[in-house]
Design a protein around this nucleic acid. Structure first.
Lengths: 326, 326
DNA sequence: CTGAAAGCGCTAACAC
DNA sequence: GTGTTAGCGCTTTCAG
């Protein structure tokens, strides 16, 4: 592998000059510039990013910390982020935290040692103090951390309201909610949105809310119990699409027809919704856009541009499938 | 951020000594060792990986190049890889190639400049010459590249045979195949396995093979055509699970009952299979294990261990769902 | 416009 | 056992 020094020798100039043409900084005579370029070409010289990083204290890489890339929501976010990063010559490091605070911190440590320029994170355990202390530019995705930290998400409360409203509009009379984990802001907000729509209804019971923890099996189990206790529930708003699958499974086990006897609506809009049968009606987030906006925001932060808007709340849309009545 | 120099000053020793205790290399008096450790603790000193990389010409990071992380097969592979890497203090860089040779090459270039220690790749365009030339340790996953390059996959031919045999064993009399893209070795092998099982059958027609390109919509379209032309086909082996979804969609559109009128079997064993209705019967690859073995193999390669086995062919298993008869 | 030289933070000879 | 020093490959003052 050729180095800047070899190029300099070959071109009979100093390394400083080569560096100048490489980075288009400072003045350099057009003739010498051409000569240097020619030698670079001939030697197929590629600057060493590590050496550059050491000097500049930046690495042109950013890290994405998600709970688990295996959860179908995240690959799409990751893809979007990687797309914008690679178009700007940045590189993406992928980390799975399992929502474990220790792991998240360990990743942060490592990233700092590697001069990683910034991180995009989906977390519910990291505190603003810790983040502040690390001093790495950061943007949160999906889950809110702190007013001081840029965040891109959707309006989960509004989305949840729309879900319930839609269920009502298609004739559901008793609507339950299988919610995501406590302490996850997005799950909490969806629950709040649901509550807001139903608490003043005469039919509402607090017992209509069950926790499915974003997990199919548990959701199936909880739903079965729920439906056995309250056979007249005719609509369920699941806290995400995976849980909607769980709800549907439970309904099938109980022999309830969907959507005739039970309507189901999810949240997220992962591509899975279109693969099931019935296709799942869902409050779709613009997942790709979320990733894309997060990446751009982080780059703004890193490259010192003024960040006009700290909190992006993107619009949800309703994707109608066959798990709800028309 | 404190540096090794500050630690040395504070501990009143040379940087060499600090480096020694850091890396446990060479002799260092127990007393001084303790003193140094204490200072490191006090200053919360963390060695700078970039500086170390520059010297050692290695970065403790490896890259994973997949066509598209959005394809549900890959997140699981990525997760497995990241799990073993992080346990060995390596970091994972994620790249999406879209099966585009130019992008793959660009990534390779960048990785080389970053002193990335190795790459795990899913490719059908990279040539052994190119890889050789780059001189980066590499292991292929899912798709075979060259006998000289370590590869971890399953025996696709055998798996495909088993799929067809299973269909036969459940009573299917005319079995078609919706195959994946030409030039992708795994798709090719599955096709070969299918062919091997059916070509001597009296009912077999070459026209029973259609190309679905690993894509749901196209598969649905092709299947619909196929089933219209040959209404008596009663079994379809889809080249992967996503295409199995496409087949099922087509069957539903045509009002064919699954599995009574048409049995469907997929390949891969992604978790999606358990989320659809009917659940998809599939030839399941040990996806997590594939990623895990690939990561270990790459680390062996990187760390100079003898690699006992270049080509790992892991075992498939049949996952029975309700898309086939019992 | 160009070159010399001082680092960025760390490791590994090589002395002592 | 421990310190000195020469780099790893690049960027950026600072002279000239």
């Amino acid at each position: 592998m050729s180095t800047i020094k070899k190029v300099a020798e070959e071109a009979k100039v100093s390394v400083a000059t080569v560096s100048r043409v490489l980075n288009s900084t400072g003045y350099v005579n057009e003739e010498t510039r051409k000569k240097v370029l020619k030698v670079i070409e001939e030697l197929d010289y590629k600057p060493n990013s590590v050496a550059r990083s050491l000097f500049k204290k930046q690495s042109m890489t950013i890290a994405l910390i998600v709970p688990n890339i295996t959860n179908p929501f995240f690959p799409e976010v990751a893809r979007a982020i990687e797309d914008v990063l690679s178009s700007k010559d940045y590189t993406l490091i992928l980390c799975n935290s399992d929502d474990n605070s220790e792991k998240e911190k360990k990743y942060f440590e490592v990233m700092k040692q590697k001069y990683v320029d910034g991180v995009i994170v989906v977390t519910s355990t990291l505190t603003p103090q810790y983040i502040e202390e690390k001093g790495i530019p950061i943007v949160a995705v999906d889950r809110f951390i702190d007013p001081a930290i840029p965040c891109v998400s959707v309006n989960n409360i509004e989305g949840a309201k729309r879900a319930v409203q839609y269920l009502k509009s298609t004739g559901c009379k008793k609507i339950a909610h299988i919610r995501g984990p406590k302490n996850i802001t997005s799950a909490e907000d969806r629950y709040l949105g649901y509550l807001n729509e139903v608490e003043s209804e005469s039919w509402f019971e607090t017992d209509y809310v069950r926790c499915g923890n974003f997990n199919i099996e548990q959701t199936t189990e909880e739903t079965r119990k729920l439906l056995n206790e309250y056979p007249d529930i005719d609509g369920i708003f699941a806290g995400n699409d995976l849980m909607a699958v769980g709800v549907i499974k439970a309904a099938m086990q109980l022999g309830k027809r969907i959507p005739e006897e039970l309507s189901v609506i999810g949240f997220d809009g992962i591509s899975l919704c279109k693969m099931t049968n019935p296709e799942i009606t869902t409050i779709a987030q613009p997942i790709y856009e979320i990733g894309s906006v997060a990446a751009h925001t982080l780059l703004d932060l890193i490259e010192g541009r003024v960040i006009e808007k700290k909190h992006h709340q993107l619009e949800v849309a309703i994707n109608k499938g066959q798990s709800t009545k028309t």
